[in-house]
């Protein structure tokens, strides 16, 4: 069975959910091997094994964090050349896609980004034009490099032992051009990550202020959801940029997306249109976002949201 290489997404130890999704896909294609760049690989092996990783290649060096993207692409290219895998899978995150792009240039292999489904014969599904059209596509030259959208495929465990293999790898100087001089992490508290969450509650201009985002956070917490924001809310400084949903923010595909005080501009839709269910709270019945709603409330969010939050908490307690 062909080996399938998976680039792990992690933050220095904790395996990101998308990596378990990639493993779930990879098992259908061949024997999954995880490529772990940076610290924490040994600790993560158990978790990776739970989802069917047969091998974990660990290359630990500070270079992977100290220089932008290129070192990871070098590592992945070196392993891909050596192992001749059946496919290379990465997360369709900002960094995952960039690694995939550089790997494609190095190898001449075809790269598909933002894939939401992959068949055993490597035909990929990609939603395009904000989800209006779905294309089936394939990488027809070399080993397919596939970037899979987080949360598009449900992770399923398939426990087994993962064999660790240390990789001696020195990052070449040519990959050390762009130096990270400072890393600034904004904590998101205990909420799930935006692209991984089963439920996302987003606020827009209608929320009115940064302080009022308490309402959005309250609703999100009642549902164990992540918080998102429209560009209007981010540009106003009410919520940090990394929570922006849309064309130039995150693309999310949760089970449920709740849009509060968001009009539904095409650029916002581009980031949430493939959500499974959509709920809308907006006081303007003409807002285009209602076209997407499975359930919509025409009303003032300052009345509807607190009432909804209280009711959810009540029902949750009653169990």
């Amino acid at each position: 069975m062909a080996e399938i290489l998976i680039l792990a997404e992690h933050d220095g130890g904790a395996v990101k959910k998308v990596t378990t999704e990639l493993l779930t896909v990879a098992r259908e294609l061949g024997e999954p091997s995880v490529v772990w760049a940076g610290p924490g690989g040994e600790e993560a092996a158990g978790r990776l094994g739970e989802f069917g990783a047969a091998k974990v290649y660990i290359a630990d060096s500070p270079d992977f964090a100290d220089y932008v993207v290129a070192p990871k692409a070098e590592l992945l290219a070196a392993l891909a050349r050596e192992k001749a895998p059946g496919a290379v899978l990465v997360a369709a995150s900002q960094e995952g896609r960039e690694v995939a792009g550089r790997l494609a240039v190095k190898t001449g292999w075809g790269v598909l980004t933002d894939v939401t489904g992959l068949s055993a014969d490597l035909i990929a599904e990609q939603p395009i034009f904000g989800g209006a059209i779905t294309v089936s596509s394939r990488a027809c030259s070399g080993v397919p490099i596939i970037a899979i959208r987080p949360n598009a495929i449900a992770a399923e465990p398939a426990p087994g032992p993962a064999v660790l293999e240390k990789v001696e790898f020195a990052v070449p100087d040519a990959a050390k051009g762009a130096r990270v001089t400072e890393r600034v992490r904004k904590e998101r508290g205990s909420r799930p990550e935006l692209t991984e969450a089963a439920i996302v509650v987003s606020g827009g201009r209608g929320v009115g202020s940064g302080e009022n985002f308490n309402l959005i956070e309250g609703l999100a917490d009642a549902l164990h959801a992540a918080v998102g924001a429209s560009r209007a809310a981010v540009d106003a400084g009410w919520y940090p940029h990394q929570f922006q949903v849309g064309q130039t923010g995150k693309t999310v595909s949760p089970q449920l997306y709740i849009a509060v005080g968001i009009s539904g501009a095409i650029q916002h839709r581009a980031g949430m249109q493939t959500s499974k269910a959509i709920m809308v709270i907006n006081n303007d019945p003409e807002a285009p976002i209602f076209e997407l709603a499975d359930y919509g409330v025409v009303g003032d969010l300052f009345n509807v949201v607190p009432q909804l939050t209280t009711e959810i908490n009540k029902r949750a307690q009653e169990g």
């Binding site: 019945p285 359930y295 409330v297 009303g299 509807v304 909804l308």
Partner: peptide
């Protein structure tokens, strides 16, 4: 989808949908 006008119970009705 179902679109309802809030007449004071919009939040509770929405919770019904979620349930």
């Amino acid at each position: 989808g179902t679109i309802v006008e809030d007449e004071g119970k919009g939040g509770i009705e929405a919770a019904g949908f979620l349930t």
